[in-house]
């Protein structure tokens, strides 16, 4: 087709589509679309019976973005920062805004430290981390591991071999640290 002013012709008319597809065009009129326009000022609509919410008590120091004026009235209390990862996390929040890559890189780094710390800590509990059950790979034999992957053009197979590196990496690191620790102790005792 030459490049002209016409809109390309359609394979199916609206009537044909309406007959073929349940609900075709039910929201053709933008007024039927609940998210149009994007902003719709209606403070009464949401059921809030406060102008500003009550404040949730801050029972321990809660890290927050320095882009906020104050601690938000409601906040999550899952997994407070602890250990070395906690120190890094608190520093990332205290020192860098969300606009800084350092903020996010520190938080991602803290996540990796947290994983290693937690694996190590789990070894002195009654329930050490178990890489077999925790990765869910036990589901493989019963869920068509070969048929799901072989004979198909799955683009993700290209990086499949990399996934185990991420999974095993922290273990090797944790193992290495334990080994180094044991060696240091042995050496100290021998001396």
């Amino acid at each position: 087709m030459p490049y002209t002013a016409d809109k390309p012709s359609r394979a199916e008319s609206s009537e044909q589509l309406r007959a073929r597809i349940p609900g075709w065009g039910a929201d053709l009129d933008p007024r039927m679309r609940p998210s149009v326009p994007k902003e719709r000022f209606d403070p009464g609509l949401n059921g809030a019976h406060w102008e500003f919410p009550d404040r949730q008590p801050e029972t321990r120091p809660r890290e927050r973005s320095i882009e906020h004026a104050f601690l938000t009235p409601v906040f999550g209390t899952s997994a407070p920062p602890k250990g070395l990862s906690g120190v890094i996390r608190r520093y990332a929040y205290r020192r860098f805004s969300e606009g800084r890559a350092a903020h996010w890189l520190l938080l991602l780094g803290a996540d990796r430290v947290d994983a290693v710390e937690s694996h190590l800590a789990s070894f002195v509990t009654l329930r050490p981390d178990n890489p077999i059950t925790e990765t869910g790979v036990v589901a493989e034999p019963s869920h068509h591991p070969v048929a799901s992957r072989v004979g198909q053009k799955r683009a993700d197979l290209a990086h499949l071999p990399l996934d185990p590196v991420l999974v095993v990496g922290p273990w090797l690191l944790a193992g290495g640290l334990v080994l180094a620790g044991v060696r240091a102790v042995v050496r100290a005792v021998r001396r």
Partner: peptide, 8 residues
């Protein structure tokens, strides 16, 4: 969550 690819 126990770390990347690990949950229990």
């Amino acid at each position: 969550y126990r770390g990347p690819y690990k949950i229990r």
